[in-house]
């Protein structure tokens, strides 16, 4: 052991305390710590916080945009549904209206046609009556003239003439009663 101690004096014990190195280590590390604490850590924390904020802000913005888009889509779909509904309603209405118009027009045309027919009938009747009346007068005159000439008897006397014609016509009518009815 004594031998060893002598050697240890020559060669430094590796666990020996060297004040210079101790102090240097302390000071160097102290300065490094100070610089890291002063310059590096705040920058890192700041960047980190900013990034977190940026990401969170981005997510929030994206979420609000998404919600907005969803709302808009729902609204559009609702509008589309309304429009479809409306279109169906209008189509239905139009169909109804069309049917009504057609029916109305048919009715009008019917009425018009029957009116025209009616009018025509009335006119025909009137004209027939007129024809009958004028014929009656004409036939009377002609017949009287003709008969006078044939008979040679003067039929100039108004009263007698009229009586003869009336009688003739009445006979005629009585004779042709059925024929006249079928014409009408």
């Amino acid at each position: 052991m004594t031998d060893h101690i002598v050697v240890a004096a020559a060669v430094e014990n590796p666990l020996g305390f060297v004040p210079v190195e101790f102090a240097l280590s302390l000071v160097t590390f102290g300065i490094l710590f100070f610089l890291i604490w002063k310059f590096v850590a705040p920058r890192f924390e700041q960047t980190f916080a900013e990034r977190t904020q940026a990401i969170e802000g981005g997510i929030a913005a994206a979420e609000s945009k998404q919600a907005e888009a969803d709302a808009k889509l729902a609204e559009l779909e609702k509008q589309l549904g309304d429009a479809r509904h409306e279109a169906a309603r209008i189509r239905e209405e139009a169909r109804e209206q069309g049917a009504r118009i057609v029916a109305e027009m048919r009715e009008t045309a019917q009425a018009e046609s029957s009116r025209i027919v009616e009018h025509g009938k009335a006119q025909i009747e009137a004209e027939r009556q007129q024809a009958i009346t004028s014929l009656r007068a004409e036939v009377g005159t002609l017949a009287t003239g003709l008969a006078g000439r044939i008979v040679g008897e003067s039929l100039e006397d108004e009263a007698r003439q009229s009586r003869v014609v009336e009688r003739f016509l009445t006979d005629l009518e009585a004779q042709n009663g059925t024929t006249t009815g079928s014409v009408n």
């Binding site: 190195e21 240097l24 490094l32 610089l35 590096v40 890192f44 960047t47």
Partner: peptide, 28 residues
């Protein structure tokens, strides 16, 4: 030599971090 290394080590560490964070931005 160890003393020089000690100081050099501290310088390297600080230089690395200072260079990394000198122009710190959100997108690194």
């Amino acid at each position: 030599k160890p003393m020089v290394q000690l100081v050099l080590g501290a310088v390297i560490v600080f230089a690395f971090f200072y260079a990394a964070f000198r122009r710190a931005s959100i997108v690194p």
